[in-house]
Simulated scan of single mutants.
Amino acid sequence: MLFTVYVLRVHGGDASFVAKYLPEGWFALADGSTMRGLAEHFPRPELLAPSVLRVQAFLELPLVLLAYVTVLRWLDGGLYRRLAGSWLVWAASVSYTFVFCTVEWDLHNPYTVDDIVIRVCSAVLTPLLLHWLARQEEDGSERSSFAQMLLFAVSVWALGHLVLTVYDTALLYNLAHLGGRLPGALVALCVLVAARVASARLPAGESGIALSSVAGGLRWALLLFFVPALAVRYGVNFGTPFIALAAAMVICLTAAIRALRETLAGAGTARIALWAAQGVTALAVGAVVGYAAVRMVTDKYYEAGLLRGAGTGFAAVVAICAVTDRWLARRAV
Rank of each mutant, 00 (worst) to 15 (best):
D139H: 04
P62G: 08
G235D: 11
L223W: 11
L283K: 00
V55L: 15
G217F: 03
L218S: 01
C252P: 00
F226S: 07
G217S: 08
E138G: 14
H177K: 15
G77P: 11
R331W: 12
L245P: 00
C252E: 02
A310G: 06
W132Y: 11
G32C: 09
L223I: 06
P45K: 03
L192Y: 12
A329G: 08
L72V: 13
H161A: 15
T263Y: 07
L189V: 07
R44T: 08
G305Y: 09
L186D: 07
A310T: 08
A39V: 02
A215N: 05
Y167V: 12
A273Q: 13
W90V: 14
Y291L: 14
L72S: 00
R119D: 07
N174C: 10
A304C: 06
R73Y: 14
Y234R: 09
I320F: 04
H131G: 02
F238L: 05
L59T: 15
G239S: 03
D31R: 11
T169R: 07
Y111A: 12
W220A: 02
A185H: 11
F3E: 05
L223K: 06
V10F: 01
A91T: 04
G313M: 01
A293N: 03
V197W: 07
R201Y: 03
A123K: 06
P228H: 06
W157N: 05
V55C: 13
P203S: 03
V323C: 07
L63N: 04
G32F: 11
Y21E: 04
L22N: 05
G12E: 02
R82Y: 06
S122N: 05
Y301A: 13
A147C: 07
T312G: 02
V317K: 00
F152Q: 00
P228V: 05
A67G: 13
G279M: 08
V323P: 01
R219W: 10
V103T: 00
I116Q: 08
F238H: 10
T169H: 07
A329V: 10
W74Y: 13
Y301H: 14
A84D: 03
D31E: 12
C321T: 08
W132D: 05
G180H: 06
L224P: 08
Y173L: 12
F225G: 03
A287H: 09
L107K: 03
V89I: 09
S213R: 02
P43A: 14
A248P: 00
W327H: 04
V317Y: 04
G239C: 04
A30T: 05
G279W: 09
Y173E: 14
V294F: 12
G12C: 00
G179E: 15
V187K: 07
R82N: 10
C190N: 08
A273P: 01
A282R: 02
V117A: 13
I272Q: 13
A310R: 00
L88V: 13
Y173F: 15
L175Y: 11
F152C: 01
G286N: 01
G184F: 10
A256P: 00
R9Q: 05
E137W: 03
I116M: 14
S95P: 05
V18K: 02
V71G: 13
R135H: 13
L222E: 02
V154Q: 06
